[in-house]
Design a protein around this nucleic acid. Sequence first.
DNA 1: AAAACATTTGGTTATTTTACCAAAAAAGAA
DNA 2: TTCTTTTTTGGTAAAATAACCAAATGTTTT
Lengths: 105, 105
Amino acid sequence: MTPKEKKQYEARAKILKALAHPTRLWIARQLSDGEHCVCEFVDAVDVDFSTVSKHLTVLKEAGIVESEKRGKQVYYRLKIPCVLKFMECIDAVIQAQILEQSDLL
Amino acid sequence: MTPKEKKQYEARAKILKALAHPTRLWIARQLSDGEHCVCEFVDAVDVDFSTVSKHLTVLKEAGIVESEKRGKQVYYRLKIPCVLKFMECIDAVIQAQILEQSDLL
DNA sequence: AAAACATTTGGTTATTTTACCAAAAAAGAA
DNA sequence: TTCTTTTTTGGTAAAATAACCAAATGTTTT
């Protein structure tokens, strides 16, 4: 791994890491049908306001979402929609695991 | 988020998390051209034997790679190759970040 | 201007992750 | 069998993450 490669993989891992949390992944999924404000997530997720806000900050700093303040609310939207394509592949991994488990019986 | 959804997103996040490390992402990439043994990674990555081994265990437990012992060596290979498709999208995120930064000048 | 609302920030604590070293295990070579 | 070689496991310390509460910020509404 050259120093250049190392930097490149660090940058990539940072983005993956931003998505690698159940709540953040769920949020990203919700944003696939258009923008939502923070309060909508808070209602749905059952964690503290501040926790949701911090998750959104992580996604934003990773460059996955962008936000816009309109009135009292802040609206978030997906910046790079392809992140949702991850889901299919991830589910293939899960599916393979389930199959293996049933093979053991 | 229903309890079922919650479990689902936790399982998905677990798999993403396994990939969300520079070394592990690099390893996954190397495996795209076929299997490699642990020692090959150790030579290339410049971390301890045990560290590489633990990274491989993380990938294995996530169901992303599988391993086979032949002789003294243990060979790892990608189990679900689509994980590599992540890379394209991740790079799109990085590309967008770079573009934005240059817009600021 | 004061009150109410939506969101972010700062601080704290508990948990998880990562890396290293040393030691154990497994297989082959001498 | 004893000595290497390859990989995993256990232990430990440092760093990163995640959740909560309380306080601060910025915007409307009264």
